[in-house]
Amino acid sequence: MAIDWAAFTPLSALAGGTLIGLGTALLLLGNGRIAGISGILGALLRPATGEIAWRVAFVSGLIAAPLLWPLLAPRPVVHVEAGAPALLIAGLLVGLGTRYASGCTSGHGVCGLARLSKRSLVATLVFMASGVLTVGITRYFLFA
């Protein structure tokens, strides 16, 4: 393991993390809800759920953020390596997996860890390990 110092952005990472924490705290203290993106989105596909509006509002804010961002700072660099078939498989697995796990990077990785939940710690360790293994296999074995 060697740290890529050219790619490592500690200050913007910490500052961005702080904002993510603020958004999480605001939704928690104002709406009484966990800022878990997969849960907020996934429950929209369940018509029985009564409370649709706040979920749509949160997701709208998330999607609107990049539209307002150019008013404050230059447009961030975004690079997607994956092609269409990989994106389809990735999306299916992320959708199915996060619903069975009842959470993703935000729900377990941020909210769960901030709540000191052992269940979320296990989930986070598993999806991190699984992600690391997947990148290792795809980068160094399949397409080496």
Partner: peptide, 22 residues
């Protein structure tokens, strides 16, 4: 098992494209 398998599947998808839900 749901938590473990679900998280493992999510991690695979995350590692394939680098996208999580947010």
């Amino acid at each position: 098992r749901r938590l473990l398998l679900g998280s493992a599947l999510f991690g695979i998808g995350w590692g394939i494209a680098g996208f999580c839900p947010g």
